[in-house]
């Protein structure tokens, strides 16, 4: 736990792709056990922002700390220089990520997907990793799919395995990048249920980029609205449902809350 007490702390994060500035100074602090939903229109930079948190994207300005450790960079005589690869890898191991398109390893079974990183990265003995992996599969309701390859699982099942895979590293922080957007409508519920379970029963610290306002209402402690590379409004889910302040927020919500 860091000195300032936040699991994740981003200060004035800037990011540009060529000429296009996609993050124009984003600051956000997330406390332990907190669930923060990031909403906003597409192109607002929310996905880019959480990809910066585990350094899948390099940032061009500002700083991001997870558990008090500067992410992706090292301070050398007052300047930030990019960290070494093994060091970045070690930091990423503490930050779980679940992707929109699942990105399960297709050549590995559900269980192997989950045990791969603990065995390869943490050096957990295979027997122990398997036991923990089976427990995680059971937690996401897929114990019987242990030896099935991702190609034989439905989208919802794949995403639940992907969540279990991220959890297997016992991360301090979990990032969800529009994890239900690629799913058929009837499968969204099962994935959201797993995420709600994590939020309420396990006090997992989560940053969730989503359009699922139902989920935000039930599980989020805080909602953050992004537009045009900036956070324009922040508040409780109730605040967003009852009395959003910004005009752009109202417009956006009126589009997604039919």
């Amino acid at each position: 736990m860091s000195s300032n007490g936040f699991v994740m702390s981003a200060q004035d994060v800037h990011k540009r792709f060529g000429r296009l500035e996609v993050l124009k100074g984003v600051s956000l602090n997330v406390s332990r056990g907190e669930v923060v939903c990031v909403i906003g229109p597409s192109g607002s930079g929310k996905t880019t922002f959480i990809r910066c948190i585990n350094h899948l994207e390099k940032i061009d300005g500002g700083r991001i700390e997870v558990n008090g450790h500067l992410i992706g960079y090292r301070e050398r005589s007052g300047k930030l220089v990019e960290d070494t690869e093994p060091s970045i890898a070690r930091q990423r191991a503490e930050i779980g990520m679940v992707f929109q398109r699942f990105n399960l390893f297709p050549h590995k079974t559900a269980l192997q997907n989950i045990t791969e990183a603990p065995i390869q990265v943490r050096g957990v003995p295979k027997g122990q990793a398997t036991k923990e992996g089976e427990a995680l599969l059971a937690r996401v309701g897929l114990a019987e799919k242990r030896d099935v390859y991702p190609g034989k699982l439905s989208g919802g099942q794949q995403q639940r395995v992907a969540i279990a895979r991220a959890l297997a590293m016992k991360p301090a922080l979990l990032l969800f990048d529009e994890v239900t957007s690629a799913l058929d409508p009837e499968m969204i519920g099962e994935v959201l249920d797993v995420m709600k379970g994590l939020a309420t029963d396990f006090q997992t610290t989560m940053i969730v980029v989503t359009h699922e306002m139902g989920f935000a209402r039930e599980a989020a402690d805080r909602v953050v609205m992004m537009d045009d590379g900036q956070i324009i409004e922040e508040g409780t889910p109730e605040h967003f449902f009852l009395e959003p302040r910004e005009e752009r927020t109202k417009q956006f919500l009126s589009k997604i809350l039919i």
Partner: peptide, 9 residues
């Protein structure tokens, strides 16, 4: 990306 997000080099 998935592999690296899990801490693999």
């Amino acid at each position: 990306e998935a592999a690296r997000s899990l801490g693999m080099t």
